[in-house]
């Protein structure tokens, strides 16, 4: 290993930028979170109020509801993606003509801007000229309107997320599956195991690190989804049925200029994701004992 001073010097520019735009803001809101500070209230000064912001926060029904929506959304979306993605990856494992074509098309949603995804699905589901409500009405006589039906709106954002992120799960699973050694599977086949047993006792344990990594990445992504949902349901409507925590901060808390309260909420949101991020970090790293 070479002189560490040079190493720190090379690292310095990145660390300074990340510190200034990534950490300083949070030190600042950690401070602001203990104050009552509203630019448009009678007194525009910061007044210290201890943990009042947090006390208000844990009883705030809108905030708790937004967290609950986020968790439900993430749960349904991620579980469906894992199942569908694993299934599709199994089908791609074998060589067949046209495989690379299918795979390339499958990748398309991954790189589209989330806000454009929201626009695409809005055009599909908008009552009036969207094909989905039109066809459902025509074929099944079923009224589909994400503008006033909370359950359907929630369903729509979950389906949109599945459409958006299943390719990621498929491709990652495929890469993991193709890297697996074939010997244990073949040995089990010789011993007369059926395909379910092979999947349950050999493939799944071997795939565990990949599945965990994908799972945690998807959970974190699900918790931070804002753009698509904001665009599709026009800010979390109808009511608060699709208002995730991100949209709540963006559409409700941020415009209110109640800086102390908003700071506390931002910090708490970050806290929740840091805890989730810890699991991702553990699954991404190799342990080295000292």
């Amino acid at each position: 290993m070479r002189r560490t001073r040079t190493g720190w010097l090379l690292l310095a520019p990145s660390m300074i930028i990340l510190f200034v735009v990534g950490i300083v803001p949070f030190i600042y809101v950690l401070y602001v979170g203990f104050f009552d500070w509203n630019l448009f209230s009678a007194s525009r000064e910061m007044t210290f109020n201890g943990v009042n912001n947090y006390r208000q926060l844990v009883f705030d029904p809108l905030f708790l509801d937004a967290i609950w929506v986020t968790i439900r959304f993430t749960f349904f979306a991620v579980v469906s993606q894992l199942i569908i993605g694993f299934f599709l990856a199994q089908l791609l494992l074998r060589d067949f003509p046209g495989k690379s074509f299918f795979r390339t098309i499958h990748t398309v949603p991954l790189m589209i801007a989330p806000i454009a995804i929201g626009a695409i699905w809005r055009l599909l589901t908008i009552p009036g000229f969207g094909p989905i409500p039109y066809l459902l009405d025509r074929w099944f006589d079923f009224e589909f309107n994400i503008g006033n039906n909370a359950t359907q709106a929630f369903l729509a954002i979950v389906i949109m997320d599945i459409w958006h992120w299943t390719p990621f799960v498929t491709l990652t699973m495929l890469a993991g599956l193709s890297a697996l050694p074939a010997e244990p599977r073949e040995a089990a086949q010789v011993d007369g195991a059926n395909s379910w047993q092979i999947f349950r006792f050999i493939t799944l344990p071997q795939m565990q690190p990949v599945v965990l990594t994908v799972l945690f990445i998807r959970i974190m992504d699900g918790l931070r989804t804002v753009d698509e949902i904001n665009m599709l349901t026009n800010g979390g409507g109808p009511g608060t049925s699709t208002r995730t925590i991100g949209i709540h901060i963006f559409r409700v808390v941020f415009p209110q200029t109640d800086y102390g309260y908003g700071s506390a909420m931002s910090l708490l949101t970050l806290y929740l994701t840091i805890v989730a991020c810890w699991f991702l970090f553990v699954s991404l790293t190799a342990v080295r004992k000292r």
Binding site: V21, P25, F26, Y28, V29, I217, M220, D221, L223, R224, V226, I245, G246, I247, I249, F250, V253, F254, Y259, G262, S263, S266, L267, T269, L270, T273, I274, A276, C277, L280
Partner: peptide
Amino acid sequence: MAPPAAFLLPLF
């Protein structure tokens, strides 16, 4: 991986 929404107010 942090939610960008948590950065809105601090960065603003």
